[in-house]
Design a protein around this nucleic acid. Structure first.
Lengths: 171, 171
DNA sequence: GCCGTATGTATACCGAGTATGCACCGCCGC
DNA sequence: GCGGCGGTGCATACTCGGTATACATACGGC
C-alpha cells in the first residue's frame, strides 16, 4: 500500500524511472525504510495495469520513464484525504504475542514482559541518541524518527501496565 | 509470523485440527483479529513442510489432527524468549504518509494532520467506550484493547507534535 | 423433503517483500 | 590496454501473509 502511493506521490511531482524512484522514495522517508528494487518494478507494473501510471517511452539515457495518469492523481489525492485506519494496519505482533502468552499455559509472562521492556528501552535510547546527534535534520527523517520514539514510549507504558495487571491477577 | 507462532502455541497445549485452531486463535486474542480459515491451512502446510508440526492422522470424527514436534516446541520457546524488534514490524503507514506529504509539493500537511487526528480521537473514544462497557473482560482481550488505546494516544501525541513542528517551519 | 446455517478441508489468487540474474558503464590498478 | 569491481538499471522467480471461494457434510426448522 505505502510503496504504491509513495511512487504515485513522487510521479505526481515529475515523471521518473524505477531506479530513480527507489532512491527518491528512500530519501523522502529519511532512509529509514529500505525498499527492494524489485518491488518498485512490480509495483510500477501493477500501477500501469490499473491505469494509474503510464509508460511514456524512454529518455535520452534509455531509462523506462513512467508518468502519473489523471486516474492516478485522483487516487493519490483520495489517499491523502483519507485517514489511516486501524483496520488497514497489520496485526500488532507484540500485543498478539502477549495475548497468546496469557492464554496458553506454561509461559512466564513476567519474564517476557521484562525482556521486551529492556529491549524497548534500549531501542528508545538509541533513537534518542540518533535524534540528538543529527546535525542538520531532514524534516521527513526527523518526523519518522519521532514517530518511532513516540511508539517506543507507548510500548513501554503499555508493558508497565501489563505487568501491573498480570501481577495483580496472579497474586 | 504471528499466525504461525499462534498455531504453534495452541498445538503445544494439545493437538488439534484446522477449524478448531482458528476458533481458539481468535478467542485467545479476544476476537480482535479475525483469521481467514484458508490461512490456517496454508500455515499448517508450511509448518508441516518445515517439520515444526506433524499430522497424526484423524480423530474419531475424521478431523485431520496436527501435533507439535520437538523442533516446533523449540522454535516456539525461542519466539517467546526473543523480543519483538522494530525491524520485524512493517512500515508505519502513517509516518510514511506524513514523510511523503512534507516532501512532495502540493500537499496541505495541516489538513492531513487535522483529519488524521480527528479520526484517531474518535477511534480512541470508541476503544475507551468498549473498555468501560466490558462486563467480564477476558484478560487477553483487554490487554489487546489497551494496546490499541496506548497506540492511539501515542498517535495523537505525535500528530500534535508534527503540527507544531510543521507550523513553526512554515511561519 | 428441503433450505439455511455451521462445521470442516482445500485450492486459487493477489499483493508485499526478497533474492537473484543479467547487462551496461566508468573507474582504478597493473 | 585491459581485467576486475562497483554503481546503475531492468526484470523475473520466489516466499509469505492474507482473502475469496469451492466443495462436502451434518443438523435443525418449516
Amino acid at each position: 500500500m505505502s510503496v504504491k502511493h509513495g511512487i504515485l506521490a513522487l510521479l505526481r511531482d515529475r515523471p521518473g524511472y524505477g531506479y530513480q524512484l527507489r532512491a527518491e522514495f528512500e530519501e523522502s522517508t529519511g532512509s529509514t525504510w529500505p525498499v527492494n528494487i524489485g518491488q518498485v518494478y512490480t509495483t510500477l507494473g501493477r500501477l500501469e495495469r490499473d491505469g494509474l501510471v503510464a509508460k511514456t517511452g524512454e529518455d535520452a539515457e534509455g531509462h523506462v520513464i513512467y508518468e502519473i495518469t489523471e486516474s492516478g492523481a485522483r487516487e493519490l489525492a483520495d489517499w491523502f484525504a483519507r485517514p489511516i485506519t486501524q483496520a488497514q494496519r497489520p496485526r500488532d505482533e507484540l500485543a498478539m504475542k502477549l495475548a497468546l502468552a496469557v492464554t496458553v499455559p506454561g509461559v512466564d509472562v513476567a519474564v517476557l514482559v521484562q525482556t521486551q521492556r529492556e529491549h524497548a528501552q534500549s531501542t528508545l535510547q538509541e533513537l534518542t541518541r540518533l535524534k540528538v546527534r543529527a546535525a542538520a535534520p531532514h524534516l521527513a527523517w526527523s518526523l519518522v524518527l519521532e514517530a518511532q520514539i513516540f511508539q517506543a514510549e507507548a510500548e513501554i507504558r503499555w508493558l508497565d501496565h501489563v505487568e501491573e495487571r498480570v501481577c495483580r491477577t496472579n497474586g
